[in-house]
Simulated assay, not measured.
Amino acid sequence: MKLLSISIAAYNVEAYIEDTLKSIVEADCIDDIEILIVDDGSKDRTAEISKKYASLYPESIISISKENGGWGSTVNSSIVEASGKYYKLLDGDDRVITNNLREFIEKLRFCSDDMILTPYVKFYEGTDKSEEVELLKTKIDRSICIEDFEDYEDICMHGITIRTELLKKNWLGLREHCLYLDNVFVANCLLCANSIRYFDLAIYDYRIGRAGQSIDVNSYIKHFDDIEDASFDVLSLYENFEGKQKVKKMIAYRAKAILTTLHVIIYAMECNSSNKKRLIHIDDMVRMKYPEVYKLMQNRIVKTGRLFHYSLYPFICKMIHYKFKRDYR
């Protein structure tokens, strides 16, 4: 059995996918890794490059081509095919940190915990700038029961590796033709994990600043309905979960994260009465149906809008528009 299945969501990433794959195969531990490249109906050479690497490493790389179904569909497909001991996501324009991967694999060899958390690195396209992002405020060097885990506010997809068999058995699936489902994936993982271990070893190298990237503000606005759908998916998981209260609160934090993004993006959209009503409607719905999630939303922008009953909506819109123009010019 391979020790790690890496699922790569690949859509029109011909300029990046080779760099992504090299970052894995050059770590000198390819025999312990299964790479599942899921080409999501790309229109460029993504599938061709993927198949080339699959032919070079037939025991380790599987190239899957499918009709376009969105990011969630690539995850759904790879989970069905994954056979490694652990499972990790990687986007086709990102990389792993080659120098750390072999040590990570050796740690997995002797690990039996359900979920592994690691820091990750943000690197900025076209610059030499990078920064390591810690998931935990206090590092833990032992296995810990999820009920005893307190430091869960910043858990994200980039820092998660989960036991494959456990994920397969409990996988609820992600909606297709939808972006921004990473928090839904995280919530799915939290629902099934009983034990967590932290390795102070950054594995995921997350690219920031690529033109057309999903975290670009224009992409956020264009795909606002996807963010809204993803937030409702997390809220549904939260509402229907009847297990441990600590896990329920963890899912509440994932809902808080995506709903906060939702607020900010509405302010970044055209400033009009329709968008203002949309913002108030969503916030009222969360306040009435999910009061715990509502209280967790302590972002300064969210709090300011609520404090003044959204009378400052035009001012906050101008402030957000200025910020995005400054940051993305």
Rank of each mutant, 00 (worst) to 15 (best):
I301W: 11
R300Q: 11
V293Y: 06
G305R: 05
K277G: 10
Y294F: 15
R300E: 15
V293I: 14
V302G: 01
T304Q: 10
I282C: 03
I282D: 00
K277S: 09
L279S: 12
N275W: 05
P291L: 03
L296S: 02
M285C: 10
I280Q: 11
P291A: 02
R287A: 13
I280M: 14
R306C: 12
I301A: 07
L296E: 07
Y294W: 15
T304G: 12
V286N: 08
P291I: 01
R300Y: 07
Y294C: 09
D284A: 12
M285I: 05
I282H: 09
K289F: 01
S274Y: 05
V293R: 02
Y310M: 01
D283Y: 01
L296P: 04
Y310I: 01
E292P: 05
L296G: 10
L296F: 05
F308Q: 00
M285R: 13
L307R: 15
V302D: 03
K289M: 07
K289N: 12
V286C: 14
R278W: 11
L279F: 13
M288L: 07
P291R: 01
M285H: 11
L279R: 07
N299C: 13
K295T: 10
R306P: 11
H281E: 08
N299M: 09
N275C: 05
I301F: 13
H309Y: 04
N275K: 08
I280G: 03
V302K: 00
